[in-house]
Each structure stands twice: as structure tokens, then as C-alpha cells.
Design a protein around this nucleic acid. Structure first.
Length: 279
DNA sequence: CCCCAGTCCTGCGGGC
DNA sequence: TGCCCGCAGGACTGGG
């Protein structure tokens, strides 16, 4: 499921080809499943972006932002199963949108593919962008947040740390999979109340966040057994082979070799941890 | 304001 | 063999 590392991999995978390219056409795919409705509606959005140059492709938390030459931003949120691809998508039936792009003499396609269709596509003016995705809507990016900021933000709440880490207003970019992996490396129980976390634990946490996310980026993200996540060239990631706790219920903890991994449900989401390493 | 449960969406796997 | 149900978790919404 695309979290920060997977979205960063998508951005890096399309950036070179897409930055500086011009949108020749924008098409909606006629798949049998329920169509994704962009904002604004498709024909209006198509009219507003056709012919424009894409100046920059960046990541904002778990979103992909394509900055257009007229200052509008096209924002893609892959959510659970969305992919941005330069290569042919995994299947034709879940292809959602296609941008025909031209860079110099080269013409090529950029695809948005999404099996479950929870992904979103939105076009924002600069004012709308600030209103919808400004600082009060999203916390600091997980790769940039400092130990001091963690401390200031966590002391304000008594929620369990794992639940708070998924709150995008508190910190942006961490999702369910990496939250478990980060807490395991930091040796912190997912149940620990935020306002109860010690200085030395904060230090471990802020280091573990960057360590896990950077390593996951290096390995181009996690492709789970359903095989959904792919990079821009439709290739699987490699970080799933390095998971220590996520999806490992009842298996021996690879860190301590003693306890077995426990699965609990927090805020309706699975959490995996080792009760020995993370007391 | 804070927090939680419910909702969207599709494919898959288990139970019968 | 086929059907039904629950589950996976991004982010948003409504209500306590």
C-alpha cells in the first residue's frame, strides 16, 4: 500500500521523463469498474490541463504533485492500490487515466492505474492548494520532522503511539505498515501513550523513522503478497523481504529470536510487534 | 478541538 | 463447485 517510500519511488520513477513535458491529451479509461471522479469533473479538468507544460513532479506526504506552468497543481493520491506508471500497467481493466505527454520530439504515455479505485485526482489553483493541503492540514513530513517536533507534538496527546503515527496532521507520510516496522526498530510498544514517551525513546523514534523510510526508499518500497505495488516501470519493490514484524504474526521475532510476533488491532487497523523487544 | 467508528472500493481467501 | 462474508488500510465524515 503506497506510503511515503512507495510514493517517493513513484515520483523518482516518473520525474525525469515527466518534468518539462507537455500534456498533449488527457483521457479517461473505459474500464468496467466504478470510475474515479476527479475534481473538478473530468471534462473540465481535461480542458484546464491540456496543452500545459508540467514544470515539476514532487511528493507531498503520500501524494504526487504535478506543478503546471500556469501554477495550478495536479495532485494524485494513490491511497491503497493506485500506481503511476510509464510502463504498461499490470492490467488493462483497472487503468483509470492516461496522459499523453510530449518532451521534445519524444511522445509517451503516463498512466494512473488503480485496482480498488480509492485513489483520487484533483486539480488545485494555488489558493485551493494552500487551503486543502497547507500546514494546518498536514503535519511535518516524516523524513524531515525533528526530535524536538516529535516531542512537542506527542506530549499533547495520550493516544497510543501507533495510532498517533497514522495521524497525518501529527506527522505526514507514515502508514500502517511502516508504523509497525518503525516502532519495532525503536523498541517502543505500539500501545505506549504518546505523553508517556521518554526522551531516550523519542531519540530512538526520530532516528528509526528516517532509518526505516530511507531504507525502504532505497529498496523501492514494499510489494506485498497481493503484488499490487509496482514502481513506474511496473517492477516490484524489495523492502517486503526486510520486514521484521509486519504480517509476521506467530513467527519468531527475527530481532530477539525468543518471543513470537503479536498482532493486535488498534483503531481498526492491524499492528504487529514483539512484546519482548517492545515492552 | 479531540478522538473514534463508519464509509468508500475491489479482489482474495476461508468456511460451508 | 459456487457463494457469501470478512479483511486489507489510504483519508474523509459525522457525531459524541
Amino acid at each position: 500500500m503506497p506510503e511515503l517510500p512507495e510514493v517517493e519511488t513513484m515520483v523518482r520513477g516518473i520525474r525525469k521523463a515527466v518534468e518539462g513535458a507537455r500534456i498533449v491529451s488527457f483521457k479517461r479509461s473505459a474500464c468496467k469498474c466504478k470510475p474515479i471522479s476527479p475534481t473538478p469533473e473530468f471534462s473540465q479538468l481535461a480542458k484546464r490541463i491540456t496543452g500545459l507544460k508540467i514544470c515539476a513532479v514532487t511528493r507531498l506526504a503520500k501524494r504526487i504533485v504535478m506543478q503546471l506552468e500556469n501554477e495550478d497543481s495536479l495532485v494524485i493520491e494513490p491511497r491503497m492500490t493506485g500506481l503511476m506508471l510509464l510502463a504498461d500497467p499490470p492490467s488493462v481493466e483497472h487503468l483509470r487515466f492516461c496522459w499523453e505527454l510530449k518532451q521534445g520530439r519524444k511522445q509517451f504515455d503516463l498512466f494512473f492505474w488503480d485496482r480498488r479505485g480509492l485513489g483520487t485526482l484533483k486539480l488545485y489553483s494555488p489558493e485551493e492548494f494552500e487551503q486543502q493541503l497547507g500546514e494546518n492540514k498536514l503535519g511535518p513530513d516524516a523524513l524531515v520532522i525533528t526530535q524536538k517536533q516529535w516531542q512537542q507534538r506527542l506530549k499533547k496527546t495520550s493516544r497510543p503511539i501507533k495510532v498517533a503515527m497514522l495521524d497525518q496532521k501529527l506527522v505526514a507520510g507514515i502508514g500502517n505498515l511502516y508504523a509497525s516496522e518503525i516502532l519495532h526498530l525503536a523498541q517502543i510498544s505500539p500501545l505506549q501513550p504518546c505523553d508517556d514517551i521518554s526522551e531516550s525513546q523519542l531519540n530512538k523514534l526520530s532516528k528509526a523513522v528516517r532509518q526505516i523510510l530511507n531504507k525502504a526508499i532505497k529498496h523501492e518500497g514494499s510489494t506485498l503478497s497481493d503484488g499490487t505495488y509496482r514502481n513506474a516501470l511496473n517492477q516490484a519493490g524489495g523492502y517486503q523481504n526486510m520486514h521484521r514484524v509486519y504480517g509476521k504474526e506467530s513467527q519468531i521475532c527475527p530481532t530477539c529470536g525468543n518471543a513470537t510476533i503479536t498482532r493486535i488491532v488498534q483503531a481498526q487497523r492491524s499492528t504487529f510487534f514483539c512484546s519482548n523487544c517492545q515492552p
